[in-house]
Nucleic acid binder design. Structure first.
Lengths: 202, 202
DNA sequence: CGAATCTTTGAAAGACGTCAACATTGGTGG
DNA sequence: CCACCAATGTTGACGTCTTTCAAAGATTCG
């Protein structure tokens, strides 16, 4: 589908905790993740991060700012070692304008993400931390393929709560044998029940 | 810019509290608001609304679902009498595919909205009700051109809090002479200060 | 090994939601 | 046009969820 981009731009290695782009800056191009994971986050006035998305293999990130014509509203930072392809703004726009299939694919991505974001808003404002953690664990489990590996702080910022609060809720899930914790590694033991907690049924 | 649509579709009158489209349904077309205001909202599991946007004159709504190829994730309901133009899905897609300027405009809209939504998420998870109300009042003041007119419940659902909570915070603002309240009508008296409250400086 | 960072725990304060009762408003039919 | 009912708005009290602060324990990395 997007092999069109394969031959364009350069491929770069990033270490853990390197910034790909930063809120307020003007976009110079888009990033395609070949290996590794990247957190996309917005910062509140006091600098506290809220992680909106964790991007992984084959995802293209950073095009929203280019398409909207205004600076980045979010930042992106690597969560681990990453191999990433950088495509310059003009090259990206060239493909957008000339390749209908590619363009339609980007439009679908934008639209779906916008829908997801609506759900995120409702979840944040109406569900408890317990419920949100349950849902997030299921979601992260997909991205991490069975073994979630995130710092407590990142996990808390993903849920949208304080680190201490997250730790207590994690412990509760562990006690109830819903998850298994080994340091930073988290495995789900009872997705079914987590799902029910996410729906506020438990 | 979007006069292209002017001759397409039918123009319909809607009374207050009529539903334009509903979460889960398949989109049949898009709506262009000629007169009146429409709330776009998502519902939580328990049916509680969260108002994501209030659309007014000249706005086109409902195209996200069409472009993403999945059912609506949100609902739309008139807040007052509205005059609205309905453009069928196929007609809309025809213009999208044939008119570059129109299409690019839609892409910009999608991208900007996605950026706004990121801010919304951060605000919801990191700011207090007081702060969110201040920011929302400023935002609504633009849309309502000087006299905000909304039910307490809608306003609460826009802020993302309980009705009672909203009422108390409104009263606080009134006592501090930041706003003037006359029934459902709210006028801002000190936008400067509200802005500072929104930034958590006060 | 030691410093720095990350994690965990406890205690206390604060924000927020919920419940129940009451007041006000607006719309409808007589 | 008025009276009445239903819907909406308001207030107080209370409980709970969540944040914050402080401090101790664990881990990591040079």
């Amino acid at each position: 589908m997007e092999q069109i981009l394969d031959e364009i731009g350069e491929k770069i290695d990033f270490k853990k905790n390197e910034i790909l782009f930063h809120d307020g800056n003007h976009p110079k191009g888009v990033f395609k993740i070949l290996k590794g994971k990247v957190k996309i986050y917005a910062c509140g006035d006091d600098g506290k991060e809220h992680i909106i998305h964790i991007a992984s293999k084959a995802e293209i990130i950073g095009f929203r700012a280019i398409l909207s014509g205004v600076p980045y509203k979010v930042s992106a930072k690597t969560l681990e070692y990453c191999h990433i392809q950088f495509i310059k703004k003009l090259d990206f726009m060239e493909v957008m304008n000339s390749n209908t299939k590619f363009r339609n694919n980007i439009i679908v991505k934008l639209s779906r993400e916008l829908g997801d974001r609506a759900l995120m808003v409702t979840t944040l404002s109406q569900k408890t931390v317990k419920s949100r953690l349950a849902l997030s664990l299921i979601q992260l489990n997909e991205i991490y393929n069975g073994t979630i590996t995130l710092s407590r702080e990142d996990l808390a910022n993903f849920i949208g709560t304080a680190t201490e609060n997250l730790i207590r809720t994690l412990k509760m899930f562990k006690t109830e044998k819903l998850i298994h914790i080994d340091g930073k590694k988290i495995e789900l033991l009872n997705t079914q029940k987590l799902n029910e907690i996410g729906k506020d049924l438990l």
